[in-house]
């Protein structure tokens, strides 16, 4: 406590300017990386980034002119303007110029919006915002729904339509490298389209405050070659693999005897709960806990023992009462569910 207070005091007394300088590299780093709309990997994000790079220089020019005029007005010796000249300045500079600029921007952005909103989707998926994870399900070629919670995978160059809704509170679905964000609203279905253009692994994030673990409500975004994507989706549609090792077999037993199946589904086993994410292929997913931990045996053990440590407010109760060995078996079982 003592040292904590000392630290916070020091921050309070830090000169403001220096703090900004310290934060500068962070700010610049935000322009790149797996979660930046300034590093686009999809048609929507590309469009938005293009618009941004037009608007920013234009705004800089306007800003310079306005500030320049203000400085100039302050520097010259005040002298009365003719009423006619003043009226003309207000009319052209204060009404016509802004109206024309904003109107032009609106026209451009309406056209851009039309381009961004596709209408020839090759792929449909449902996305429901939960507290605090993503209930995603793909419609496979046979028309079946394939649940793939907390991970968005899309084939490059193909338009995907995402039907968005939410449970309980409003969330916002945002994969910044691919496109804009759209709210997920309980009792309403919103629609968005994404067309990825560059294969890679990115990150998505809930963009509407939705409760305690809002910041920990993320998802990996994987843009794949279409063939690889089809294989992947076919794999996800399969029932779970049988446990391959003795440890995994014991984990599978524990999974049922501890009642994990009350909340989680593992297709092909008696576990058929719908409260939490489907775990049929959890071992093949990049993260657990909705983008919070990179999938690994250790991460699964930590998560099962105490989810609230990495994700405050998570609905899953901790299973710290299990022995280390039991947690290990469970993790082995889940890692094997590829």
């Amino acid at each position: 406590m003592q040292s904590g207070e000392g630290t916070s005091l020091r921050i309070v007394h830090h000169p403001r300017g220096r703090r900004l300088i310290v934060l500068m590299p962070l700010w610049l780093a935000g322009c790149d990386g797996p979660q930046s709309w300034l590093a686009p990997a999809g048609r929507g994000a590309d469009t938005v980034a293009g618009l941004f790079w037009v608007v920013v220089p234009a705004a800089a020019v306007i800003w310079t002119v306005v500030i320049g005029l203000a400085v100039y007005a302050g520097a010259i010796t005040p002298r009365p303007h003719s009423e006619k000249g003043a009226s003309r300045l207000i009319l052209w500079g204060g009404i016509v110029a802004p109206t024309a600029t904003i109107f032009a921007l609106m026209v451009v952005s309406l056209f851009l919006l039309r381009d961004v909103t596709g209408n020839s989707a090759d792929l449909t998926l449902n996305a429901r915002g939960e507290q605090w994870w993503w209930r995603l399900a793909y419609e496979d070629p046979q028309g079946r729904l394939v649940p793939v919670p907390n991970e968005l995978r899309l084939p490059v160059g193909h338009e995907a339509e995402i039907l968005l809704t939410a449970n309980r509170v409003i969330h916002s679905f945002w994969a910044p490298t691919l496109g804009g964000k759209i709210d997920m609203i309980p009792g309403r279905e919103n629609r968005m389209t994404l067309t990825p253009t560059t294969p890679g692994v990115y990150r998505g994030q809930c963009a509407e405050f939705c409760g305690e673990a809002h910041a920990q409500m993320a998802f990996p975004v994987v843009v794949m070659q279409p063939d690889a994507f089809d294989d992947w989706l076919a794999g996800q549609a399969q029932p779970a693999r049988a446990p391959a090792t003795e440890a995994a077999r014991r984990g599978a037993e524990l999974f049922l005897s501890e009642g994990c199946g009350a909340c989680h589904t593992v297709r092909g086993t008696p576990a058929s709960g719908e409260v939490g994410p489907d775990l049929t292929h959890v071992g093949s997913r990049l993260t657990i806990g909705a983008g919070v931990l990179e999938t690994s045996r250790e991460a699964l053990i930590d998560w099962i023992a105490a989810p609230e440590v990495v994700k405050p407010g998570a609905r899953m109760p901790g299973y710290a009462m299990l022995s280390e060995a039991e947690l290990g078996y469970l993790a082995d079982y889940l890692m094997g569910l590829e």
């Binding site: 501890e258 009642g259 199946g261 009350a262 058929s272 709960g273 719908e274 409260v275």
Partner: peptide
């Protein structure tokens, strides 16, 4: 159970 409530019989 349903999407909000786990099945009782699982435990």
């Amino acid at each position: 159970g349903d999407a909000e409530r786990p099945s009782c019989l699982s435990c």
